[in-house]
Simulated assay, not measured.
Amino acid sequence: MKFKLILFLSLIVNVACSQNNNAQTSTTLPAKEDFKDDWANLSKYQKENTALGEPKQGEKRVVFLGSSVFEFWKQKDPGYFAGKAYVDRGIAGQISPQLLLRFRADVIDIKAKAVIILAGSNDIAANTGHITNERIMDNIKSMVELAKANQIKVILCAYLPIIDYPWRKGLEPADKIIALNKLIRAYATQEKLVLLDYFTPFVNEVNGQKEELTVDGVHPNLKGYKIMEAITDQAIAKALK
């Protein structure tokens, strides 16, 4: 009987120790964050936005809001952004509703004075059957309305020409981009917004990009970005005057 009691008490102690060890393990292992709910990738620039802090006196921040053309820009020519109040907030692959969702965090909350909106190409490239130029324009218009409500100057972009997407061949996007640019131009005129024409300097005779200005028919090379820089500076000066 005494032996059974000792064995029983020993089992209780072992179970208690095991549970305690499991509890310690569960509290010491860091929980892995799940970002599936962050469809617009708001977390990408969260730390950088915080580090920016409040604008200095006289600082006029200009946000470049777009996808890969903007994100790759600071990689190809970081010197263009150095020493300026230019804030690159491009995220490769993003479509216009994602830019709209990011607008508060990546434009309004960092106290931008102006925003350059380059949107639409990835919507067209997705080709899910649900994307139309009218829906792209709805998202652009919503961003413009948010900017105006927060006294932020808007620069709208006529998108670069694209004859084909290397990763989604056969979509024939050239005419769709031309049609979208026509809508963007008309809306910019209607709302008295600055239009930044990236299409004209890049377009070749078949409505694609000039070979000497691009790496893949979609994204500019350094020479292409240099051309964009000159006309972008002009548009910013016009918007902020």
Score class of each variant (00 low, 15 high):
Met1Val: 01
Met1Gln: 07
Lys4Glu: 02
Leu5Ser: 13
Ile6Phe: 10
Leu7Cys: 08
Leu11Ile: 09
Ile12Val: 01
Ile12Thr: 04
Ile12Tyr: 06
Ala16Asp: 01
Ala16Trp: 04
Ser18Ile: 14
Asn20Leu: 15
Asn20Val: 01
Asn22Gln: 13
Thr25Glu: 15
Thr25Trp: 11
Ser26Arg: 15
Thr28Ala: 08
Asp38Arg: 04
Trp39Asn: 13
Leu42Tyr: 11
Leu42Met: 07
Ser43Met: 09
Ala51Phe: 06
Ala51Ser: 14
Ala51Gln: 15
Leu52Ile: 03
Pro55Asn: 12
Lys56Pro: 01
Gly58Glu: 03
Lys60Ser: 07
Arg61Pro: 05
Val63Arg: 14
Phe64Ala: 03
Phe64His: 02
Gly66Tyr: 07
Phe70Arg: 04
Tyr80Ser: 02
Phe81His: 07
Lys84His: 12
Lys84Gly: 08
Ala85Gln: 12
Arg89Ala: 00
Ile91Met: 07
Ile91Pro: 07
Gln98Met: 08
Leu99Asp: 13
Leu99Phe: 08
Ala105Asp: 15
Val107Thr: 11
Ile108Lys: 10
Lys113Pro: 00
Ala114Pro: 02
Leu118Arg: 14
Gly120Cys: 08
Ser121Ala: 13
Ser121Asp: 14
Asn127Pro: 00
Gly129Ser: 12
Asn133Lys: 13
Met137Gln: 12
Asp138Arg: 00
Asp138Trp: 03
Asn139Ile: 00
Asn139Gly: 03
Asn139Thr: 00
Met143Gln: 05
Glu145Trp: 00
Leu146Cys: 08
Ile152Phe: 15
Leu160Asn: 09
Ile162Gly: 13
Ile163Cys: 05
Asp164Cys: 10
Gly170Pro: 06
Ala174His: 13
Lys176Leu: 08
Ile177Val: 12
Ile178His: 15
Ala179Gln: 13
Leu180Phe: 11
Asn181Asp: 14
Arg185Trp: 01
Tyr187Pro: 13
Ala188Glu: 15
Leu193Pro: 12
Val194Asp: 11
Val194Cys: 10
Leu195Gly: 05
Thr200Cys: 11
Pro201Gly: 12
Phe202Ser: 11
Val203Glu: 12
Asn204Val: 00
Lys210Gly: 01
Leu213Trp: 11
Val215Thr: 11
Asp216Pro: 05
His219Tyr: 03
Gly224Tyr: 04
Tyr225Leu: 05
Ile227Gln: 15
Ile231Leu: 11
Thr232Asn: 10
Asp233His: 09
Ala239Ser: 10
